[in-house]
């Protein structure tokens, strides 16, 4: 026997519709992904440039039998490149945190900067101080060497969990996996495989093939920036649709 009345159902539907509208408006105001994705996209483009310099300038082919010593500037650049995601990534998280703090204060809603600042400071400490006297130190170094985005990825996932932000978590996984694969030369190797299978390996310059990972990094950066712009436009669209209810 169904004892639910049509009035109950209409009221239940109205409540669900209203709560969804309020939820969307609050999410738009407090969980905009535009700035986090924009910052992450710019950082990824920056990493593509750093990787380009490392691959094509510092480690360029001098020719058969040729060698030279690295300059001090090249060694310093190499150190910056090694800690890029620890230092520049941490700065990026702090910038997002600062922006959210100002926005939350001005708007009167949102969790503020706490999680972002904690993530940025944690990342910065890991990159600068590390865990030199701990057995974990070696492991941290190895993980950073193999997957330089591992720690900023973990920080972003923790922030996403704290903010209950599924979209940020999904973007973080996409960013972390693709950038790590590019760092390991995955896309260059797959392009090489593809050229071998299609019999085109000899007709394409190896120097061009090895740029595949850099191209993927640049594309990821541009996709993140594009997603940021799209999120901002979507937010403006919602703002126009969700007008405050007057009772």
């Amino acid at each position: 026997m169904n004892d639910t009345q049509p009035d109950d159902v209409a009221a239940a539907k109205a409540v669900l519709a209203r709560t969804e509208q309020l939820r969307r408006a609050a999410r738009r105001d407090t969980k905009g992904l535009a700035v986090p994705l924009l910052v992450l996209g710019v950082l990824t483009l920056g990493y593509a440039v750093v990787s380009y310099v490392e691959l094509n300038v510092i480690a360029s082919d001098l020719g058969p039998g040729q060698s030279r010593a690295a300059t001090d500037a090249e060694l310093q650049f190499g150190q910056i490149a090694d800690t890029y995601w620890g230092l520049v990534g941490a700065a990026g998280l702090l910038v997002v945190g600062l922006w959210l703090a100002v926005r939350s204060r001005r708007l009167g809603a949102g969790a503020g900067a706490g999680a972002w600042v904690a993530g940025g400071v944690g990342l910065l400490l890991l990159a600068t101080v590390g865990l030199p006297f701990s057995p974990l130190g070696v492991m941290v170094g190895m993980v950073g060497f193999m997957a330089p985005t591992a720690f900023i990825g973990i920080a972003l996932l923790l922030i996403a969990g704290r903010r209950r932000d599924r979209r940020l978590a999904v973007w973080t996984v996409v960013f972390g996996v693709v950038v790590t694969l590019a760092h390991l030369g995955f896309f260059t190797n797959r392009l090489g495989d593809l050229l071998r299978v299609t019999g085109l390996a000899d007709s394409v310059d190896v120097h061009v093939v090895v740029q595949a990972d850099l191209v993927v990094l640049a594309v990821v950066g541009l996709v993140l920036i594009g997603a940021a712009v799209r999120d901002r436009r979507a937010g403006e669209g919602t703002r126009r649709v969700d007008e405050p209810e007057v009772s």
Partner: peptide, 24 residues
């Protein structure tokens, strides 16, 4: 219910934000 829905999404909000968003 509206107050709780807004706070669940925003985590925290001030009096003015709640007032204007809920029309109270």
């Amino acid at each position: 219910l509206g107050i709780l829905v807004v706070l669940a999404e925003a985590e925290r909000a001030d009096f003015t934000y709640l007032k204007s968003n809920l029309g109270l």
